[in-house]
Design a protein around this nucleic acid. Sequence first.
DNA 1: TTGTACGCGTTATCAT
DNA 2: ATGATAACGCGTACAA
Lengths: 344, 344
Amino acid sequence: MTLKDLARELGVSTATVSNAFNRPDQLSPALRERILGEAKRLGYRGPDAKARSLRTGRSRIIAVILAESLTYSLNDAVSSEFLSGVAEVLDTQGHTLLLLSARQAKCQLVDSASMADGFIVYGLMPSDELFDSLPLNASLVAVDFNVAGHPSVHIDNEPSCFEIADHALSVKSRKRPAIVNLRLTETPCNGRVTPEHILLPPERTITRARLSGFYRALEKHGLDSEQVPMWNVEENTFDVCAPVIEEILDLPDAERPDLLLCMSDRLALTALTLAEQRGLRIPDDLCLIGFDGIAEGQYRAPRLTTIRQESGDKGRLAARMILGLEPRHSRLLKTELILGETCH
Amino acid sequence: MTLKDLARELGVSTATVSNAFNRPDQLSPALRERILGEAKRLGYRGPDAKARSLRTGRSRIIAVILAESLTYSLNDAVSSEFLSGVAEVLDTQGHTLLLLSARQAKCQLVDSASMADGFIVYGLMPSDELFDSLPLNASLVAVDFNVAGHPSVHIDNEPSCFEIADHALSVKSRKRPAIVNLRLTETPCNGRVTPEHILLPPERTITRARLSGFYRALEKHGLDSEQVPMWNVEENTFDVCAPVIEEILDLPDAERPDLLLCMSDRLALTALTLAEQRGLRIPDDLCLIGFDGIAEGQYRAPRLTTIRQESGDKGRLAARMILGLEPRHSRLLKTELILGETCH
DNA sequence: TTGTACGCGTTATCAT
DNA sequence: ATGATAACGCGTACAA
């Protein structure tokens, strides 16, 4: 049953049937009633989305391209919250959400992509050439990194990290701070960062900005940031974090850090769990700070001291920009220091 | 730049260009090279997905229709894990994932839907009529509930709940068990379930099956299940669960249950957090069991005693069935009892 | 209200 | 074998 069949059946033109569905004002109410009634009776389900999107050039589909795999992104609290914000706005506006990952085979990514009306790109992409393959006219908003020629949504990573590290270092004198990084080395590294490791360039990744904030706070407190031991973790999941955190916690007492500046809540929560297992008192023996402000860190005792970034707002804003509900220029969102009980 | 333009530019037919992209065996390698080379040079990005999907009838898009809102589903660990499993398989098979919610306006849901090649329906839908509007030929797999004429994927809710409740009641004598339900009343209810409340019919919802399992275990242990107090929560989030759990925990000592049979880990974790805040010792003062086996319940101390359902496997299986990688008949997945420290 | 060109490829059929 | 032709998929938009 197609629109054309229905038109023939009713003895009206296809245009009229189309109008009955899309533009009520273009035909008499009586005729419209009749068309809709017959449509239902004959089992015609309304204009086909594929045909319509070919004709109009729009699909009402917005694609989110995630830097990480879908499997990871969907299980991570921060990106889930982001997606949830995106979905909320799209839903309201009658659009739908197509999930893509930059990790997918390029060809299939690109042609699924050409169905979408717009793109929200979340996180640092493995390469920029991807963007050359996207439809030229489609709009694009980058989140947490920049794409030349397109607006982006960021949070103020450096100041936030300065603020929280400054807080951590002020509360009580900590002799042995250490930093736990997320995906910050040029080559993959799960473990201690040595001078041989090259760090990703500042403009490429948000974690580098977080590191700068930590460094600035350390310097302010008279510490030589170069001397502060640093670890790195490649993936923000318990399973990947745990071995690295264990390596830290299992250092001899005299060497074990008494303050961990973690770049994510997942890192900090992993440290918290493993530290508790080892009988370390928090915050007395070990002080912890995180970043993100995920629910899991707050609905527990002790609550994590962390920086709350509103990932949901980030998603909502990006979605609104894509849909043209918001001016298309780059935005910087604020964060908030949450004082929990893991650092005081 | 369309395929037609490129064909004209090269002086070959559109069919040949199409073949160069889709069926290398249909033309000489030399010609194919030339076409692909020129395509790149002239900025032709390959066949347009919209046009192709109109012609072929396929889009390589699989839609997941979620019973809950996208906002909720993306933030919930269980459904995220499910989606993650779906995405993993689709990815591998060159398909993409479109997220829809049964809560969306019907019309937009239906027409976004008509783009998809297949549907995975997750959770109890508000109404069945939705399925009448879906494309007739499209394949459909239901998860956690049944849709007439289509295969489904289930877990064994009743036996699992019997098993864990039986365990809980065996470990030590508990005088005052109580049940915390999830969305089980006919009319919304966040609080104590009274005889006036009508419960959803067993065939409609998995939580009713869970309740049966609990009841069977209670009877086995000589308890009158009718007498066991029951609460109900409408949404599986901390914010909605908390007030109900507080109502339970704040009962006078003599009335407060010493065993909570919770239908989800979120419920149990909420109870755990709030109980700890009140200085209740777990499991001595209060014994807790959950359902789901989400990571959050295991990466902590005490770990939750719960039933682990492999939501990821559920998603993978549903996706494989939709893609025809798996026979299209209903399947029942096994669960596993996880002995944590919240009930012994 | 209607006729109809158009959007962009795909594929069956035909020709060389 | 290779390549070309043309019908087809389903609506939409604009002129009439």
